[in-house]
Design a protein around this nucleic acid. Structure first.
Length: 659
DNA sequence: GTTTACGCATCCCCG
DNA sequence: ATGCGTAAAC
C-alpha cells in the first residue's frame, strides 16, 4: 500500500479510485468533487445534484485515503447527514459511519459536552428549547415585577425572539430594538434588565439555550487556541450543506474550524434562503470568497429534477425579484405538462380538488408517497386533513407543531431532566407546578431549598410545612427511584407510572389522546442506551411528525401522501406537488408585506415550493377567504404568480364534480 | 397570601 | 387549541 502511494505516476493515481467519477458526474460536479484541498464554494441550484455532489465528494475523500473520522459534515438536519453518509458508504463499499455529521447545534452540543470544562461549562448542562427559554424569560419577567405594569410590556415570546435575534445576527439588543422594534425603545432599560437576569439565571443553573450552544462554541474556539488547534487536527476536512441558511454566528464557527487547514467546502443556493426569520443571512454565501480569498467557486445550474415547464415557472418567479440571484437553471428533461393554477370557490372546494386529483393520480399509477401537498403555514392544511380523512387517503404531516412540544410530553421530559441535571430550575418549576396545591410561589420557595446533588432527598424536608405533603413525598420517591436506574426506557416507564394519575387530573377531558402520545414517546425512549442522548436528541433533533400525524404501521405498505410546510420540505422532491393556499394574504403571509426583505424571503419560499416538483405541479387558491376581522374577502392568486402568461402557468377553473 | 378556575385574545416558518 | 389577565376559593 505504502509503496504505491510513494510513486507519483498518473497511472497509479488512476487505479486509486474504484468509482468512475468522470462518468457519473457532470464536469462542474466533477470539479467540486475532486477539489479536495483548500476552500471551495459550490452554488448549487435546486435539483442540480447537490446531494449527489456531496456524497461523491465524501467517497472521493475516503478513497483518497483520508480517515473517515477526519471528515466533518454539517447539514441542516441529522436525517440529511445520515442519508448522505448512507449513500457514500454504499458507493465506497465500506462504512462511512465514523464520519462526524449533524447540525451545527448538535456538533456544538457534542463539542461542549467533551470540552466545555475549558470554558467553564459543567458537562451536565441542560439544553433549553425555545419553549423552555420562554418559560425562563417569563419567570424572570415576573421576578422583576414587569408583568404588573399598567403599560404594555412585551410578551415572553416577543422577548425571546428579540434576544435570540440579537445573538444570531451578532448585534446588541439595543441596536436590534432601535432598528427593528422602534415601538419598544422606551422599554429598553427594562428589556436589558430582563436580558441580564435571563443570562445570569442560565449561567447559575447550567442551562444553555439554542443560541448559547453556538455562542459558547464560537467563543471557546476563538479564546482557547489549543481547542481550535485540536479540533483542526481532528476534523481536517469540513463540509457545510445549506450554507445560505447559516447566520453570522455559524459563519464564524466555520471560519474558526477551517482556520488551521483551510479545507472547507460550503454548498448552498442564495435563491433558496428561507430562514432569515431566525437570523440566517443569505449574504453569508455570497461573502464566502471574501472570508476565504483562495476559494474556488463552482456553480451547478443544470437541473435534473423538474420538467422544463416547471423550471420555466420557477425561473419566472425568481427573476421577478428586484435583486438578481446568481444563476438561472436549465433542464434537458423532456417537456411535460404545464403547471396549473387552480381557482376554487371555497376552501372546502380546494380540499376536494386536491383529494380528488390524488385519487386520480393513484389510478394512473403514481404511488401516494410520490405526492406532496405543500403550504406556507401549518394550519393551512387543517381542512384538507379532514377531507383526506373522509376519503381514507393516508397521509403523514411534517412541520408545524410537534408532538414533542405538547405539554404532557414536556412534563415527562422534565422529570428525566431534573434527574440528569438537578440544577435544571426550569424543569423543577414545571414538575412542581403539576402538584396539587403548589403554584408559582410555593414552587419558587421549594426551589430555593434545593441545591446540590440529589435534591429530591431534601424534598422531604420541604414537606414538613405544607398540606401538599403527600404529593411532594410521592414526587421525591419517584425521582429517587428513577435515579437508581440508568436505562432510558426503564426511567421513562417509572416516570409514566407516577405521571399517569397526574395527567388524568390536570388534563381531565382529553387524556386518552395524550396517553397515546406518551406511549409513542416511551417507544422512542426504548431505542436509546443513554438518557443524556435521549434528552439531547429531543431538544436538538426532535421527531418531525406533527401531532396526530402518527399512523398505524399497516398504512405504510400502501404509501402515504406527504403534507408538509415548505420549510420542512427543503431538499426533498416528489413526482407531483400541490401548493395549497397560493393566495395573497396567506402566501405571502400578511406579517411580511410591510417589509421588502421579508417579502423577498416569501418569494424564495415560493421558489423552493415549486422546485420540489418533478413532473406535475398545481398551485391552488380559493376565491372566498374567511378573514377574522373582515368576514368573507375576495381571494386573489399570490402576487408571486399573478399576471403570468398562460403559457407559463395554465389557469384551471373547477367545475363542481361533487354529487 | 396563594392557588385555581374562568373567560378572553391569539395562533407562521424552526434548531 | 394555548397563553394571558382577572376574580373567586382554599
Amino acid at each position: 500500500m505504502k509503496r504505491y502511494t510513494l510513486r507519483r505516476e498518473p497511472a497509479a493515481a488512476a487505479t486509486q479510485f474504484r468509482i468512475p467519477y468522470a462518468d457519473e458526474l457532470n464536469p462542474r460536479q466533477l470539479e467540486a468533487v475532486t477539489a479536495l484541498d483548500g476552500p471551495v464554494l459550490v452554488i448549487a441550484g435546486a435539483g442540480s445534484g447537490k446531494t449527489r455532489t456531496l456524497v461523491y465528494r465524501v467517497a472521493r475523500l475516503v478513497e483518497s485515503g483520508i480517515p473517515p473520522a477526519q471528515i466533518l459534515l454539517l447539514t441542516f438536519t441529522r436525517k440529511a447527514a445520515e442519508e448522505m453518509l448512507r449513500r457514500a458508504s454504499a458507493l465506497v463499499g465500506g462504512s462511512c459511519a465514523q464520519i462526524a455529521g449533524g447540525t451545527f447545534h448538535s456538533f456544538a452540543h457534542r463539542t461542549l459536552r467533551r470540552h466545555g470544562e475549558l470554558v467553564g461549562i459543567a458537562s451536565s448542562f441542560s439544553i433549553l428549547d425555545r419553549g423552555d427559554s420562554e418559560d425562563v424569560i417569563g419567570l424572570v419577567r415576573g421576578e422583576l415585577a414587569l408583568d404588573r405594569k399598567e403599560r404594555r410590556f412585551p410578551r415572553k415570546q416577543t422577548l425571546a425572539e428579540i434576544f435570540s435575534m440579537a445573538v444570531n445576527k451578532g448585534t446588541t439588543v439595543v441596536d436590534l430594538v432601535t432598528a427593528a422594534y422602534p415601538h419598544l425603545v422606551e422599554e429598553l432599560p427594562d428589556l436589558l434588565r430582563v436580558y441580564a437576569r435571563y443570562t445570569e439565571f442560565k449561567e447559575a443553573k447550567q442551562l444553555l439555550d439554542y443560541d448559547d450552544l453556538l455562542v459558547r462554541l464560537r467563543n471557546a474556539l476563538a479564546e482557547r487556541t489549543e481547542l481550535a488547534a485540536r479540533l483542526g487536527r481532528e476534523y481536517r476536512y469540513l463540509m457545510v450543506d445549506e450554507y445560505q441558511d447559516t447566520n453570522a454566528l455559524q459563519a464564524d464557527i466555520v471560519r474558526l474550524l477551517a482556520a488551521p487547514h483551510g479545507n472547507v467546502m460550503v454548498v448552498g443556493d442564495d435563491a433558496q434562503s428561507i430562514y432569515a426569520f431566525r437570523g440566517a443571512d443569505f449574504r453569508n454565501i455570497l461573502a464566502f470568497p471574501t472570508l476565504f480569498p483562495a476559494a474556488r467557486v463552482v456553480t451547478l445550474d443544470q437541473n435534473y429534477r423538474s420538467t422544463p415547464p416547471i423550471l420555466d415557472l420557477a425561473n419566472e418567479i425568481i427573476n421577478r425579484a428586484p435583486h438578481r440571484y446568481t444563476k438561472n437553471l436549465f433542464s434537458e428533461r423532456a417537456p411535460g405538462d404545464k403547471p396549473g393554477l387552480v381557482r376554487a370557490l371555497t376552501e372546502p372546494e380546494q380540499s376536494r380538488f386536491v383529494a380528488q386529483r390524488i385519487l386520480e393520480l393513484r389510478e394512473e399509477g403514481v404511488p401516494l408517497q410520490d405526492i406532496a401537498v405543500l403550504f406556507r403555514s401549518s394550519f393551512h392544511s387543517f381542512d384538507l386533513e379532514l377531507e383526506l380523512g373522509r376519503r381514507d387517503i393516508p397521509f403523514v404531516k411534517r412541520g408545524g407543531f410537534r408532538f414533542i412540544e405538547t405539554a404532557h410530553v414536556k412534563d415527562v421530559l422534565a422529570h428525566l431532566r431534573v434527574v440528569a441535571n438537578p440544577a435544571d430550575a426550569v424543569s423543577w418549576n414545571r414538575i412542581l407546578l403539576l402538584l396539587d396545591g403548589v403554584g408559582p410561589k410555593k414552587a419558587g420557595d421549594i426551589l430555593a431549598t434545593l441545591a446540590g446533588p440529589a435534591p429530591w432527598e431534601r424534598l422531604a424536608e420541604a414537606r414538613a410545612r405544607g398540606q401538599s405533603a403527600a404529593a411532594l413525598a410521592r414526587l421525591a420517591d419517584v425521582l429517587a427511584d428513577v435515579s437508581r436506574t440508568a436505562d432510558p426506557g426503564e426511567q421513562v416507564s417509572r416516570v409514566l407510572a407516577y405521571y399517569e394519575p397526574v395527567l388524568r387530573r390536570v388534563y381531565r377531558d382529553d387524556h386518552p389522546k395524550r396517553t397515546r402520545d406518551l406511549e409513542h414517546f416511551a417507544s422512542i425512549a426504548c431505542r436509546y442506551r443513554a438518557t443524556g442522548q435521549l434528552l439531547a436528541d429531543m431538544a436538538l433533533e426532535p421527531p418531525t411528525d406533527s401531532v396526530g400525524g402518527i399512523l398505524a404501521a399497516g398504512d405504510e405498505d400502501e404509501g402515504l401522501v406527504t403534507l408538509s410546510t415548505i420549510h420542512s420540505a427543503k431538499g426533498l422532491e416528489w413526482h407531483t406537488v400541490f401548493v395549497l393556499w397560493a393566495a395573497d394574504g396567506r402566501f405571502p403571509s400578511p406579517y411580511t408585506v410591510g417589509d421588502d426583505a421579508d417579502l423577498e424571503e416569501e418569494r424564495r419560499l415560493m421558489y423552493v415550493a415549486v422546485t420540489r416538483a418533478k413532473d406535475l405541479l398545481y398551485l391552488t387558491y380559493p376565491i372566498e377567504i374567511w378573514d377574522r376581522g373582515a368576514g368573507v374577502v375576495f381571494g386573489k392568486p399570490s402576487r408571486f404568480i399573478a399576471d403570468l402568461d398562460e403559457e407559463i402557468l395554465e389557469p384551471i377553473a373547477l367545475v363542481d364534480e361533487e354529487p
